[in-house]
Structure formats: structure tokens, C-alpha cells
């Protein structure tokens, strides 16, 4: 598997994979896809590195510790988006701006807190995918003679 060809392709594919992931996430409200899919796509990009380079090289790219941080950050973000409305006396997960109120547009992306929530989902799923892959890969690496 670890031929020059696969390694070159894997390395070349990584930035576009992340780009696609981010696109799937931010366009989630307008088109197919959401933070969950985006997280898995980005995770697959990292998985490709593990397949092509093996655990020791790929681990330099993104560590399990980073994955855990991404997961914690995502969970914190999602919890904040969920529970901050409580402080204003609204039910949990009341998104701002309110329905039909004015929203800032960035291209097809509309800036609402639901997008932030989706970013939280993305970070969690990405963290889970990379963490799980990394841990399995490390275990394989250790058990190899």
C-alpha cells in the first residue's frame, strides 16, 4: 500500500478533502450535507493518511490529543449554543436571530447560531473519527512484531 503513488495522492488529497468538508458544513443549511457528514469526510481524509503512510508518520500530522481537544471544543460549543438561551429566559436551543428576522448573508451562508451548533457537531464527529482511527492504528502498530 505504501507506494510513492499512494503516498503522493494521499498527501495531495488532504487539503481538498478538508475544503469539501468545510463546504459541506457551511452549505448544510442550503444544500445536502451537515456538520455530521462534514466531520466524517474530514475524518476520512485523515484516515487516508494512516492507510498510505502508516501510524508513525501519520501521527505527526494530527495527534490523538488534538482529536480529543477537537471533541471537547465541539462539545463545549454545542453545549453553549444549547444552554446560553436559558440565561435569557428562552427554552434550550433557541436560535438567534429569531424566525424571519434579518440575517447577515455571506454568499449562500446565513449567519445564525444553528450554524455554530453544526460546527460543534462537526468538531465532535471529526474528533471522534480521528481519535478512534488513531487509537486503533496505534494499537495495531504496537501489536505488530
Amino acid at each position: 500500500m505504501t507506494t510513492i503513488l499512494t503516498q503522493t495522492i494521499a498527501r495531495l488529497l488532504l487539503p481538498p478533502t478538508f475544503m469539501v468538508a468545510v463546504a459541506v458544513m457551511v452549505k448544510g443549511y442550503a444544500d445536502t450535507g451537515d456538520g455530521f457528514s462534514a466531520g466524517v469526510i474530514a475524518g476520512l481524509g485523515v484516515l487516508l493518511q494512516y492507510v498510505a503512510f502508516g501510524y508513525r508518520v501519520a501521527e505527526r500530522l494530527i495527534t490523538i490529543r488534538t482529536a480529543a481537544r477537537s471533541l471537547v471544543a465541539g462539545l463545549t460549543l454545542a453545549l453553549l449554543v444549547s444552554f446560553v438561551p436559558l440565561l435569557r429566559g428562552d427554552p434550550i436551543l433557541t436560535h438567534a436571530p429569531a424566525p424571519n428576522a434579518h440575517v447577515i448573508h455571506l454568499g449562500s451562508l446565513e449567519l445564525i447560531t444553528a450554524v455554530l451548533f453544526d460546527v460543534g457537531v462537526f468538531l465532535i464527529v471529526f474528533g471522534f473519527a480521528v481519535g478512534a482511527i488513531g487509537m486503533v492504528a496505534r494499537a495495531i502498530d504496537r501489536s505488530a512484531p
Partner: peptide, 29 residues
């Protein structure tokens, strides 16, 4: 403010369910 109903359901209408599910993901890791 959405055009894709699935994403809006996940992040808004049934957001609390999603919150629970992603918490489970975190615990699973």
C-alpha cells in the same frame, strides 16, 4: 433561515436530540 430540511431538523427543530447524540459520541470515544 434554512433551505435543507434535514439540517434544520438536526440543528434546530430536534436540536436537543442531536445534543444528546453527540454527547453519546463523545462518551463513546
Amino acid at each position: 433561515h434554512g433551505k435543507d430540511i434535514v439540517t434544520v431538523i438536526l440543528a434546530d427543530f430536534r436540536g436537543l436530540d442531536t445534543m444528546g447524540e453527540i454527547t453519546v459520541i463523545a462518551i463513546a470515544l
